[in-house]
Write a protein that binds this DNA or RNA. Structure first.
Lengths: 208, 208
DNA sequence: ATGGATACCAGACAAATGTCTGGTATGTCA
DNA sequence: TGACATACCAGACATTTGTCTGGTATCCAT
């Protein structure tokens, strides 16, 4: 019946669908139909197919709620959750991973198992903008390049430091003049991973 | 046939389903069945229903891919995307919001429209651990409390500062001795919002 | 005006998916 | 041992959902 200017409804349908996907469940064709007051399923379907042709949506034909966001859409890969660990003590990483304090949404393409998040204690990295209470997201790896910010075991607890590789030894540099450089033989270093992201929540992220 | 120790398979199914929801589309009962090698749909169904009873999953009966993550699950609300703006110039916030540089996954419960993200320029907030290139996530609001980290218009560009409310005037404090405090009459202040989160990507978040 | 494109509609069919009934085997515990 | 719960299976049915065919109305450019 009535007719909408070209592209207007289309755009709204796109935002609607995208929002639903991000929230965890794409809409069915009929849900789109109802949300926009179409009297025919086909109307919704045509818009949706058009959005797929434009590359704004992807879809798996024949499957219920088959729409998705294409990887190359600039909206980032689908989010996934990374376990947040309160603290990690000697040899306890695997155990800690099984009982996380919570989960953080990230957009990393890495397998979930390769990432974890850790709450920072102490001011030893303040000079690098990593403050107590901040959360670092870490990619698990046993080695790292000189200059990388890493999580390593120092004594019996995991700490964040800047890695410096020297000829015969390895140094863990704090970024704060009040703390001392830690020097270890390269056979003794125990690197848990490399920091790929730092986060700071200035208010409760759940309520805020 | 074979039988698995109590709860083991159940736990794996939970992780599987949760992961799929976060990625944007919950599995069907039959997808769970196949993923775990059940020879009957009902087996998968029983596990799923049990997870709902335990409160680990929510579901809408009768609907395709009807499972979801309960809000109170501790895994945070479903992720949603916040638009990332490269820079904001005078009066351009609304325009900028329509053409974001990308999107970031967050777990905020706030409506999507109330949040935006901004890339930080300059070292004026280094003392607060906010470095150039960092991303701040901002809740849109025209006022804020003294001491809050805010995004405000200074000249014709948005900048991040600490807000101090004095008797008759408002001060925007940098956190860096090299920068000067900005003093404005409280009628002239133009606050875009309050910083609720700071992020720093130490390697390319898409490849990393 | 006319052909084409867009936006929408009505009704149906078929596949995907949720749900159900009734069963077997294995473990736990009184 | 027997009652009970758990884990699983086989096969079917009903609903939801994707898909299709054929149509009307409006706008635009030629």
């Amino acid at each position: 019946m009535g007719r909408t200017p070209a592209g207007q409804t289309r755009r709204k349908i796109y935002t609607f669908v995208r929002d639903r996907i991000i929230r965890g469940r794409p809409p069915t064709v009929r849900e789109v139909q109802e949300a926009f007051g179409f009297r025919a399923v086909q109307s919704a379907r045509e818009h949706l197919e058009a959005l797929v042709s434009e590359g704004l949506l992807s879809k798996e034909p024949g499957r219920a709620r088959g729409f998705g966001l294409p990887d190359a859409s600039g909206y980032g890969p689908p989010a996934r959750l990374v376990p947040l660990l309160g603290r990690v003590q000697a040899g306890q990483l695997t155990t800690a991973l099984e009982e996380p304090d919570g989960y953080l949404a990230t957009q990393s393409r890495l397998p979930e198992q390769e990432l974890f998040a850790l709450r920072v204690r102490g001011r030893s990295m303040s000079g690098a903008g990593i403050l107590p209470g901040d959360i670092v997201i870490v990619r698990r790896q046993a080695t790292a390049a000189s200059g990388d910010t890493v999580v390593a075991m120092v004594g019996d607890e995991a700490t964040v430091k800047t890695l410096k590789i020297k000829k015969k030894r390895i140094e863990l540099h704090p970024q704060n003049p009040d703390f001392a450089v830690i020097v270890v033989a390269d056979s003794e270093i125990n690197i848990l991973g490399k920091v790929v992201e730092v986060r700071r929540y200035l208010e409760d992220p759940k309520t805020g």
